Simulated scan of single mutants.
Amino acid sequence: MFRTALVVAAVLVAGLTIARSEPVSNRVEVNGMQMYYEVSGRGDPLIVLHGAYMNIPSMGEIIPMLAESHEVYALELQGHGRTTDIDRPITYQNLADDVAVFMDAIGIDKADVFGYSMGAAAGLQLAIRHPEKVNKLAAASVAYDAEGWQPALKAFIPQMTVEMFLDMHFADQYRELAPDPDGFPVLVEKLIALEHEPMAWEEDVKALKTPVLIITGDADIATLEHSVSMFRLLGGGVMGDMGEPLPESRLAVMPATAHTAVIRQPALLHAFVEPFLNGETPKGMFE
Score class of each variant (00 low, 15 high):
1 M>C: 03
2 F>I: 10
4 T>C: 07
10 A>I: 07
11 V>W: 07
12 L>A: 14
15 G>N: 03
16 L>N: 04
18 I>S: 12
18 I>Q: 12
18 I>V: 15
20 R>G: 01
21 S>D: 02
22 E>P: 00
24 V>W: 03
24 V>N: 03
27 R>M: 01
33 M>A: 09
37 Y>D: 02
37 Y>S: 05
44 D>I: 02
47 I>D: 06
48 V>M: 12
51 G>H: 03
53 Y>Q: 13
54 M>P: 01
57 P>Q: 02
58 S>A: 07
59 M>V: 06
59 M>H: 08
69 S>M: 01
70 H>Q: 12
70 H>E: 05
75 L>Q: 09
76 E>M: 02
86 I>P: 00
87 D>E: 13
89 P>I: 03
89 P>W: 12
89 P>D: 07
90 I>S: 11
96 A>T: 10
96 A>E: 09
102 F>C: 09
105 A>T: 14
105 A>W: 03
111 A>V: 05
113 V>I: 13
117 S>Q: 15
117 S>Y: 15
119 G>I: 06
120 A>F: 09
124 L>C: 14
128 I>W: 11
129 R>N: 15
132 E>N: 06
136 K>Q: 11
137 L>F: 10
137 L>T: 07
141 S>Y: 15
143 A>C: 09
146 A>W: 05
151 P>S: 11
152 A>W: 06
155 A>L: 07
165 F>E: 00
167 D>L: 06
167 D>I: 04
170 F>G: 00
175 R>F: 00
175 R>V: 01
175 R>T: 10
181 P>D: 08
184 F>K: 00
191 L>S: 01
193 A>W: 09
197 E>M: 12
213 L>Y: 10
214 I>R: 10
218 D>P: 13
219 A>F: 13
225 E>V: 06
226 H>F: 04
227 S>F: 02
229 S>W: 01
243 G>T: 03
244 E>A: 14
248 E>K: 15
248 E>L: 15
248 E>I: 04
249 S>T: 07
254 M>V: 15
257 T>P: 14
260 T>H: 11
264 R>A: 11
283 K>L: 15
284 G>P: 00
286 F>N: 04
287 E>Q: 10
